[in-house]
Design a binder for these strands. Structure first.
Length: 122
DNA sequence: TTGCTGACCGACG
DNA sequence: CCGTCGGCCAGCA
């Protein structure tokens, strides 16, 4: 039984997806980071990572405070830094929370990684 | 409809 | 570490 696929159907052409992505991102604790894939996995299963990235680009227009800087790729790299106005804005936001960034990569990514799938367990 | 493109991911060589 | 490939899904020409 693949409950994942049934969950995924819910998000097919469903605006709800954006809202849920923003909701999860808002749950990321200060000084912690998560990944596009983890959020996608939590919401509907594998393969939604690109959708999450897509939603994040929309978060800019959403104007409400979505801590998008706490979302990095699976390698801990700041792949979305070019969408923050200036190329180093994302890094500065992270460093302001005590997250060290070296070479566009989160230092101690594994330790700081906040996984909604296991942390939320819903 | 096809065929790209994307703030992605994992496997493989 | 690097490049490639297949998978995922929405939007657009």
């Amino acid at each position: 039984m693949k409950e994942q696929s049934s969950v995924r159907k819910i998000y097919r052409k469903n605006e709800h997806f954006f809202t849920d992505v923003f909701a999860v991102v808002n749950l990321i604790p200060q000084g912690r980071v998560t990944t596009y894939g983890a959020i996608g996995e939590y919401l509907g299963g594998r393969g939604l990572a690109r959708m999450v990235g897509w939603a994040m680009s929309a978060s800019h227009a959403h104007s409400s405070s979505v801590p998008a800087h706490r979302v990095v790729n699976s390698s801990g790299e700041l792949s979305g830094r070019h969408h923050f106005g200036s190329p180093d804005a994302m890094q500065k936001l992270l460093e302001a929370e005590g997250v060290r960034v070296v070479n566009d990569k989160v230092d101690g990514f594994k330790t700081l990684f906040w996984n909604p799938v296991t942390e939320l367990e819903i």
